[in-house]
Nucleic acid binder design. Structure first.
Lengths: 331, 331
DNA sequence: AATGTAAATGTAAACGATTACATTGACTGG
DNA sequence: CCAGTCAATGTAATCGTTTACATTTACATT
């Protein structure tokens, strides 16, 4: 069932059929009716591949997630989808599982014209690759970015967020603060570590890298790290974890040795995962404006689709620290 | 940069270039080298849209998820991706957010030939729509199915899983067992409710529908339900929740009134979410073979891609009940 | 009546690949 | 030396659209 069949049934040319489908003006009401009837009659559905080839665009945006096991991305995606739909774009998702080969595979959809643009939530591509890609195709980053990369991105001020969290602990009197970071080599990790460091130094507290430990983001890993940190001398009295899952691991370990988060040790996580408010104790956390991160990233990529050589924008959205039971110590 | 440009640079016809790209035999080593050199020289990348149009296939499979906020799907997807890759297919994901309109929108990729097949993890389409679709396009279901639908699917035996969980409680002496179900009208909900009911009836225990309550799968909703259930007379001494998030909500409520899951009330959840083993207390749960559900669904859809009229397969994979702290009462 | 204008429709060339079929030329065997 | 074979390559049709341009027709203007 192609446009040709419709044309035959309706007794018009394929051009006219196409005009009707695309709501082109200048086709008489009578003909329009005939064509529409024919379309219904033979149950015709336009072939998007043919259309895309001719128009050389797909009206699709690719979203690249590092994993599906982190619900953090859910609201971002919602933002992406809603704004994309508004603008007439469809959204397709791919999951890289932190594998750069998979990432390259899906980014080929960009070079092979299967999608018009791509939003990366986490990339392991080299700076060189990113730049090559972004200079030739609409490609933007959301939440994480690659240092010095020449493309548009949107994220929060990770450094400042960690700085504020650390400062909060310092103001409360904590002299020894630990950090459970991650080993994904993400920009956010680096920036948060830097913010933590800056706050300490600024407060005249000795900065000791031993107190920053890298995890694989699994709670189990945070449990081990928490154990190690507590064996240090002096032991930290407050912890900053770069994700709520890590905060959970730490709290779990504390429980296992009879300590209580928010009483014996204070903890702040990152991301405001839904479990953060449900866990016992509930977890203080740095919340990101996830929906807006999503909508903004769509705007950035569409800007690039419309004009590949538009200026690269770096957008910083505001974060918010939510204080809950895990930071209720009076210390 | 098209195949024409390559042909010009290499001094051959486009057919020869195409042959080299597709590793066709019968092109001399000398010419092959020339063509490859030209491809590199002008940095040519084949346009997949053109290719797909001509070959009328996309080598892509669409996976339709109801949500991104449930990590349950992560391992299933992993299975899907790995098996699909093995078979030379790419995987694209779309999220319906439980909205049937969104579902239809993405399923258009099937009718418009943008993907070769689709795997649905949760559908709200009517039986009629499902049948229409599945009879014309490769479309299969995974984990959830639509009653009487004429298509292939793979899932666990939900009814029996709930039956076994209920029976476990009964054997332990529980006389009053509650169920926290869901209101998504999913097949799994219905089947699990039926299994629960059958176990009760078979054990000669009065079946009272008041003890089955529907949630929206959010922990908060389970908290309310748990409160209501405990006010019944008699109050249930064991609970079956159709997801681990619901089990968490119930446990959280119990804590809030000074009761302890696994001691005062026993609870079994579903899905073996990663948080189930990390929560305090850890949660007993019905685990599904997620990875295998994924790989199997790919096999089913590829079978349909290769032969749309192949017989519809209904595959049941084994589940497993994991007993943890939330079912440690000696009662 | 001749001419111009505009609306409605048709014709045919793209888009970028694959592939059936045709052609070329070198080589073989009788 | 000629017919036949086969490997290597080219020509052109095709996939299903959109769209620039051409054509037709009706009507208004002079």
């Amino acid at each position: 069932m192609t446009i040709k069949d419709v044309a035959k049934v309706a007794g018009v040319s394929i051009a006219t059929v196409s005009r009707v489908i695309n709501k082109d003006t200048s086709v008489s009401p009578v003909t329009t009716k005939k064509v529409k009837k024919a379309i219904k009659e033979i149950n015709y559905i336009p072939n998007t591949v043919g259309r895309n080839l001719r128009k050389s665009k797909s009206e699709m945006i690719l979203v690249m997630l590092p994993t599906l096991s982190n619900p953090f991305y859910s609201k971002i995606l919602k933002g992406i989808e809603e704004r994309a739909t508004e603008q007439g774009y469809g959204v397709l998702i791919s999951v890289t599982h932190h594998d750069v080969k998979v990432e390259r595979k899906y980014l080929k959809m960009l070079t092979t014209k299967q999608v018009d643009g791509a939003i990366s939530l986490f990339s392991k591509l080299s700076l060189q690759e990113i730049n090559d890609l972004a200079s030739n195709y609409p490609f933007v980053q959301c939440c994480e970015y690659t240092e010095d990369a020449k493309l548009s991105y949107v994220m929060i001020d990770n450094q400042n967020a960690a700085y504020e969290a650390t400062q909060y602990f310092i103001k409360k009197g904590h002299q020894c603060i630990g950090m459970i970071s991650g080993s994904f080599y993400a920009s956010s990790e680096k920036l948060r570590e830097q913010g933590y460091k800056n706050a300490l130094i600024e407060a005249g507290i000795d900065y000791d890298p031993t107190y920053i430990m890298k995890s694989n983001y699994k709670p189990e890993s945070a449990m081990e790290i928490c154990q190690t940190l507590l064996q240090l001398d002096p032991a930290p009295t407050a912890l900053i974890a770069v994700s709520d899952t890590l905060a959970i691991g730490a709290i779990k370990y504390l429980k296992s040795i009879g300590m209580e988060a928010g009483v014996d040790i204070e903890i702040i996580g990152f991301d405001n995962a839904s479990i953060a408010s449900l866990y016992e104790p509930s977890i203080s956390t740095v919340a990101q404006p996830r929906y807006d991160l999503g909508t903004t990233s769509v705007e950035l990529v569409i800007e690039k689709i419309n004009n590949l050589h538009s200026v690269n924008k770096k957008i910083i959205l505001p974060h918010e620290i939510l204080f809950r039971e895990s930071t209720t110590s009076k210390k």
